[in-house]
Computed example of a mutant assay.
Amino acid sequence: MNLYFRLLWLFVWRLRHITQIGFLDTSRMAYRVWPSDCDINLHLTNARYPALMDIGRTYMLAEMQQLKPLLKLKWLPVVNASEFTFVKDIKPLQKFWLETRVLGWDDKYFYIEQRFVSDRGLHAIANVRGLFMCKRRKITTEELIAQVGFSGEAPMLPPSVQEWKAMLQRKKDENIV
């Protein structure tokens, strides 16, 4: 129920009061850890991170002024893979920010970095690989880049993301039956 409230808050309040960012800029969304977000260790449960990240990516699209146009086209984001590194816990009632940014793309996928930070520093960092779909059709990165009006070069993916991308391909190759 907690996440439904946060999603409703996003659509009812936050989307009316957002700042505009560029396609490669960082989106920053504030959160607070509620008791219902905690596990038995009394910190933000690991299961909550991906759910908050979903909301953060939606917020980033809204700040880019792309949420409504993409929904109108019925282009829906789909996560293909994600990886997390947890650095330190986030305590109950602690305020933190989720920073979301597009790292780059290839011919099929977009790579997004999401960082959980507070006044205490970095708590977790995650990379997400995804694409957009419309009626079972994969939207090419070229189509999406044209839709959002970005005209620059694709940024070079950081070495750690290039290694992750290669590992995902090896994993796929090793498990094809």
Rank of each mutant, 00 (worst) to 15 (best):
I112D: 02
T26N: 05
G152W: 07
F23Y: 13
L103H: 10
F84D: 11
L93R: 12
I112N: 02
T58S: 06
R28W: 00
R16C: 08
L3N: 13
G130K: 12
V148G: 04
P35H: 04
W13L: 10
I40T: 12
M1K: 09
D119C: 01
I112A: 02
S160R: 08
P159I: 04
Y31P: 00
L103C: 12
D37V: 12
E153M: 05
I55N: 02
R14K: 15
L131F: 11
I18G: 03
E143P: 05
M29E: 09
L76R: 04
L168Y: 02
I176V: 14
P69G: 08
V161W: 04
Y59G: 00
R137T: 08
Q169T: 15
I112R: 00
P155V: 03
K172W: 11
I21D: 05
E143Y: 01
S82E: 15
K135D: 13
S36C: 11
Q20L: 01
S151R: 13
Y111P: 04
I21M: 05
Q169E: 15
R115G: 00
E63Q: 15
E153F: 00
V148Q: 03
R101G: 01
N41Y: 14
V161N: 02
H43N: 10
L131Y: 08
L52C: 04
F86R: 11
N127T: 13
R170M: 12
P69Y: 08
I90D: 05
F132A: 05
F96N: 09
T26A: 05
R28S: 14
V79F: 07
W9C: 01
Q114M: 10
K72I: 11
C38P: 09
E63D: 04
D25G: 02
L61P: 06
M60A: 15
Q169L: 14
G104W: 11
K165G: 00
G121P: 08
S151H: 12
S151K: 14
D37F: 01
I40R: 06
P50K: 13
V12F: 10
S36N: 14
L122C: 04
N41G: 13
I112P: 03
L98A: 05
L103A: 11
W105V: 04
W97V: 06
I18K: 05
L73A: 15
E63H: 01
A146C: 05
E163T: 14
R6Q: 13
W9Q: 10
I125D: 01
K68M: 09
V128F: 13
G152V: 06
I90C: 10
F132R: 03
M60F: 10
F84K: 07
N46M: 07
A124I: 06
Y111A: 03
F150I: 08
W75R: 06
N80P: 00
R6S: 04
E63C: 08
V148A: 05
L61V: 09
A30C: 02
N175S: 14
Q20P: 01
H43A: 10
M167G: 08
L71K: 07
Y49L: 11
V87F: 08
R136T: 12
R57T: 11
W97R: 09
S118G: 12
P77M: 02
R136A: 14
C134T: 14
R137F: 03
R170W: 11
